[in-house]
Amino acid sequence: MEAKKTMHAPKLHRFRASSVPRTRFATTEHPAVRWLLTGITVTFLTVFLLFPLFTVFHEAFSRGMEMYLASFDDRFIRHSIKLTLMTAAIAVPLNLIFGIAAAWAVTKFDFRGKSLLVTVIDLPFSVSPVIAGFVFILIFGAHGYLGPWVEKAGIQIVFAFPGIVLATTFGTVPFIARELIPLMEAQGRDEEYAAMTLGASGWRTFFKVTLPNVKWGLFYGVILCNARAMGEFGGVEVVSGSISGRTNTMTLQIQQLYFDYATVPAFAVASVLAFLALVTLILKNALEWWSHR
């Protein structure tokens, strides 16, 4: 939500700079109140965000750099990283296409069942990922609705890569659509109408008008979606069967290593995930900076 606000921010800033007199303090509250509020925020952030993050890296490097690097010399760990990246590489583009299509349909057109569609897009947010995982077992498992058919076709869906992709895709469906819908709603349909009046086809309008208008929101949605896809745990845990070297994604491998009493490798993999998350945040900020220029 914040991102959308900042995305319109440039105009707002210019307006305020000229018309509102600048004051030294943002509020007129007593300094003690301001210090107290700032203190609470800083403490909260330290305890709940910075400290856990620090712990991950601290544990990962607790036996030195060599042990840390040696952790990655393991076929199971390397496979889990590869599997996670491959899963995200499929789930994110799928949701990219779906997210744009859904946001486009919802904001630029009126049709029956629109509110139902919006609700359905939000479903993965409200349904526990574990339940999503079980749903796929109920559909594709050996005793599921499509189980016998899948088995006859010689395909393995659950407890294999396709199941992991399905669970991850399901869990990340709302991210891009949810990012685009409020943005596109705020932009309205006037520019599209103008394009059509000038004789542009539907596709042309979409690619030349609609899409360029939302590109920053779209990038942001992709980044969030990717972060979630790589960090997915609950749903994937149910459909994966937890086979090291085959169906363990990074999050599952971290749990497995922890249970194997392999603390350093567990936190080493965790540090990679945390590092990817940090990169995501930096990218996000860079994007915001770019979009403001």
Binding site: I97, Q156, P162
Partner: peptide
């Protein structure tokens, strides 16, 4: 999209 999703997934599997 709906039609291509399973194909994509199976292909990668």
């Amino acid at each position: 999209l709906l039609l291509s999703t399973p194909l994509l997934i199976l292909g990668c599997g």
